[in-house]
């Protein structure tokens, strides 16, 4: 089978969100000697984008989108072990995410993490209701490119502002890009508190992350 055909089959199974067939096809592709990097960049990434479109068009829904994210993450993990020593998957960047102090609503944040990681970001999920000090400590320790802060309630939204303020005072604000999200959050709020970006759902969070890091999507896909 031609490489193109193998990749097309992987995309097709991925768009069907077939949790058995995608890993099977990927294993076969590796056995046939197809470059794992090609599978990620021209197969899984393309499939994930297509799945994002299906979600936007209301042909699939949240539980299926989550599964697609899980499949992509698992396949990426499998592929890692097949890279020869000196080749590594270029991660788009390191993102740490959490819900801010006082907010325990984390389904949205989890979804953002899943999609970011499926789209080639390394994601460290700090969890929910994370104190501002802990976030600062982690920023210093891990030096992420992006910090994603989620708040579902209007009463916890000021926590996002507080984190930005604290990072500023500690002198690390300029070293990271900050994305904010959550039901009541608007772009106006993001601008007001001095965040770098904002997204209203998980799929646009990925686009926003790419945007603030100026990741060139086309070149990432062509590998």
């Amino acid at each position: 089978m031609k490489t193109d055909e193998v990749i097309d089959n992987i995309i097709e199974a991925f768009v069907r969100i077939d949790e058995k067939e995608v890993p099977d096809l990927v294993s076969k592709a590796i056995a046939e000697g197809i470059d794992p990097l090609l599978i990620v960049n021209q197969g899984i990434t393309v499939g994930l984008r297509e799945v994002g479109n299906l979600f936007a068009n209301e042909e699939i829904f949240l539980p299926e989108l989550v599964l697609a994210g899980q499949i992509a993450t698992e396949v990426n993990e499998t592929l890692k072990s097949h890279f020869s020593g000196d080749i590594v998957i270029e991660k788009k960047g390191l993102v740490i995410i959490c819900t801010v102090s006082g907010d325990v609503h984390d389904i949205g944040k989890n979804l953002v993490g899943l999609l970011l990681s499926a789209s080639g970001y390394e994601v460290v999920d700090l969890g929910r209701s994370i104190p501002t000090d802990t976030i600062l400590k982690k920023v210093k320790e891990l030096s992420p490119q992006i910090v994603g802060l989620s708040a579902l309630l209007t009463i916890t939204m000021p926590g996002q502002k507080e984190v930005i303020q604290t990072l500023k005072e500690a002198g690390v604000r300029d070293k990271v890009k900050i994305l904010v999200g959550g039901a009541p959050v608007t772009r106006e709020w993001a601008n007001e508190i001095g965040a770098d970006g904002y997204a209203d759902d998980a799929s646009s969070a990925v686009l926003e992350a790419d945007q603030v890091l100026k990741v060139d999507l086309e070149s990432a896909i062509s590998g």
Binding site: P63, E64, V66, Q70, D106, I107, N110
Partner: peptide, 14 residues
């Protein structure tokens, strides 16, 4: 935990 990612949800929500 959350139930969004379970097979049970995928099988039943529709």
């Amino acid at each position: 935990g959350d139930f969004v990612r379970t097979k049970h949800t995928r099988d039943n929500f529709r």
